[in-house]
């Protein structure tokens, strides 16, 4: 099987520089520091022993920290994927080769996602520290990792689409972080707002409107908390057509694929119906 040339080149460039081990080290330092700091604080209040029940709390904290870091790092990796090629004036010579635009986008996407997966895999020893004391099942841990993969794919394709849309990396990065913020925070705020507006005050709990339910099923922190066995923030967390993780995965995988296809379409030459074409 032949490797995508863009993927091979990106990997070569990315993993050759000193920056990559530096980023991995910094990432581990932040996540590990938080994890060990948490254990230390717990131990400090009750010196001499560590409560195994607390490891679940730690697992949730670690997973949430990791999710927030993913939300920061992934769009940053992909939001310059196409626009930086434009800025460096390397895109034209790439587009006149026999590579298909979708192949170029896919190569860049896989390279960025591979780096994120490396970051996640590098944190596995930290999870082992928690696993030692129990409090959660290996199935939940696998579920969280699968959730991370879907989320990386989503945030990566958001960055890629912004990079294909904007001519410059600066605006592309700002827009990518804006969209990621809307997904991470906006969905739950909007869902909660709709729930509160539609709720009739009274002793009987009001049913959650479908749109609110859907929005909380599409909110990454909420979905992750539910994978970890926590309840939904509003309502009983009923299933819509399929389980919450199915809705999350199916919806965001579809959105991601559409964003990547759209990004590739943006690379194709167009007739100048408007004022500019992508080459300007």
């Amino acid at each position: 099987m032949k490797l995508n040339p863009v993927l091979l080149r990106e990997m070569r460039q990315r993993f050759r520089t000193f920056r990559t081990p530096l980023i991995v080290s910094l990432y581990l330092l932040v996540v590990g520091g938080l994890c060990l700091g948490y254990i230390y604080l717990r131990w400090r209040h009750m010196p001499g022993f560590y409560q195994p029940g607390r490891s679940r709390e730690l697992f949730i904290t670690l997973s949430m920290v990791q999710l927030i870091l993913l939300a920061f790092v992934t769009p940053g990796l992909t939001s310059g994927a196409i626009s930086a090629e434009r800025e460096k004036q390397t895109l034209n010579v790439l587009l006149v080769t026999r590579l298909k635009p979708l192949g170029i986008v896919a190569g860049k996407m896989v390279s960025s996602c591979a780096f994120m997966v490396l970051l996640i895999v590098a944190t596995l020893p930290l999870y082992n520290v928690i696993l030692l004391y129990g409090g959660f099942s290996p199935g939940q841990m696998l579920g969280v990792f699968a959730f991370y993969l879907v989320t990386i794919f989503l945030f990566g394709s958001v960055g890629m689409a912004c990079s294909a849309f904007f001519q410059r990396t600066g605006p592309s990065t700002v827009a990518a972080y804006g969209v990621v913020f809307a997904v991470m925070v906006g969905t739950i705020l909007l869902g909660g707002f709709i729930y509160e507006v539609s709720r009739v005050p009274g002793p009987v709990p009001a049913p959650v409107p479908v749109i609110s339910q859907l929005l909380q099923d599409l909110n990454p922190p909420v979905v992750m908390m539910r994978i970890l066995g926590e309840g939904a923030p509003f309502g009983p967390g009923r299933d819509l057509v399929m389980p919450y993780w199915g809705i999350y995965s199916a919806f965001y995988l579809l959105v991601s694929v559409l964003l990547l296809v759209w990004s590739a379409a943006r690379l194709k030459p167009r007739r100048a119906g408007g004022r500019t074409t992508w080459r300007q």
């Binding site: 080149r9 070569r12 460039q13 050759r16 520089t17 460096k88 004036q89 390397t90 034209n92 010579v93």
Partner: peptide, 10 residues
């Protein structure tokens, strides 16, 4: 092209 760049680190 009239202006073109090269890839760093290759």
């Amino acid at each position: 092209p009239d202006f073109f760049g090269v890839y760093d680190g290759l």
